[in-house]
Design a binder for these strands. Structure first.
Lengths: 221, 221
DNA sequence: TTATAAACAGACCGGTTGTCCTGTTTTGTT
DNA sequence: AACAAAACAGGACAACCGGTCTGTTTATAA
């Protein structure tokens, strides 16, 4: 009954990569759901099944852990859900539309809106620490760059001639970010579709109307 | 040198409204700059020059204080910087443009981007507590409603016939929210102007281009 | 005046937080 | 086998947090 050793010696197996991954998994989820300051290392350790010593060995401070989450997980999330689909799409507009719809569909089926990982941390940490801010700004930059590059690719194919690549990229990212912010607050993904529709209608109405006009003129002849 | 009484009796003057206002001022600023969880009541008490007893008398819990900040200050900020200017503008587009430019100009002159008060708290607190979420969602709703109403007013004046009021309102709020998020992260207000230009170009390009075309045709003759 | 409640002061407390430290076990190298 | 370094265990700790409590002062009303 006294001083029972919890772990009998000879049973431990070192797995630094696996342990690190487990900690990052838990931290990413907790930062996303509760935020950085509301996530205690104690909670993370319990959730990951990791002792204080192990955690400290891989991530000396809480800041180091958050920086790793940002650079390895948040950046990857933006890459997966936005950059890759846009690059793979037939056009910028198609790519943007597909992302909005994919995210909206995903939120609707899971019935819960956690918000955008990047924006969540950006709001909480941008002013808290310069290192956080720099890391987050880099992800925003890559995100915008990918969209702007896609617009330029469209332009070389003869499309989107009167679209400013950088401005459109900023608009797309801002619209998505803001829409996710509202979706998170209202816990309703409908605003995502509203924004997508308004974005598409407004942005492509010039072409659509000109085409319609041309058709009418042809008919008139 | 021993036990100097800090406050000699007979000098105190009760000023509940003033004290409450001071606390809200400090809390609003701190929540905006550092966030809710990163703002300790001790810091707020020191900054406001208020004792624990006084703070507790006006705001029993930290949550109650935050709720008061949201309902009284954040809502008022949205009203002042967005709703009133839009309602006073000659048209929805003019109102939106004027707000974007006013905010961008203000940020540029103060050389520092604190972000949108509503979005800052929305990201941190929406999932933390249902009461927070409800209060914040209400402000978003009023914000969108004001813009949608303005579009409807435009429509009754014969303008904006092919604009969906609710969708445009969602787009305007989302664009601003997302642009401010990026501006905060990059500490650069330029993205605000990018987004405004992209929004205006896309949304009004139909009309603008048609007009330019007409002018060129007149010149040709 | 006197009673009564509001407004405020200031200490106090249990719990939590992030970090550090010492020791033990495992792994890799020679 | 011998050794060093990495990987991990687990406790300790000082600082801090939010909330509570008791007591005193001020304002209000009878």
């Amino acid at each position: 009954m006294t001083a029972r050793p919890k772990v009998r010696p000879g049973k431990r197996t070192n797995d630094p990569e696996g342990l690190r991954k487990r900690v990052l998994d838990v931290a990413e989820a907790s930062f996303q759901a509760r935020g950085y300051h509301a996530s205690s290392l104690g909670d993370l350790m319990a959730a990951a099944g990791v002792t204080g010593g192990a955690l400290h060995h891989h991530f000396p401070t809480k800041k180091a852990l958050a920086l790793a989450v940002i650079e390895e997980r948040v950046a990857a999330a933006v890459e997966t859900t936005w950059i890759a689909p846009v690059q793979a799409a037939g056009s910028t507009r198609e790519g943007v539309r597909s992302v909005f719809e994919a995210v909206a569909a995903e939120l609707e089926q899971q019935g819960f809106v956690r918000g955008c990982p990047l924006n969540n941390l950006a709001h909480e940490l941008s002013l808290a620490d310069p290192d956080f801010r720099t890391a987050l700004a880099g992800i925003f930059s890559a995100w915008r760059q990918a969209i702007a590059d896609k617009v330029r690719a469209d332009q070389q194919a003869g499309r989107e001639q009167d679209t400013d690549p950088q401005r459109f990229a900023a608009l797309a990212v801002a619209t998505y970010s803001g829409a996710m912010s509202m979706a998170k607050t209202t816990q309703d993904s409908a605003v995502l579709r509203d924004c997508l529709n308004a974005l598409e209608q407004g942005v492509s109405s010039a072409r659509a109307k000109r085409r319609r006009r041309v058709l009418r003129q042809y008919k008139a002849f």
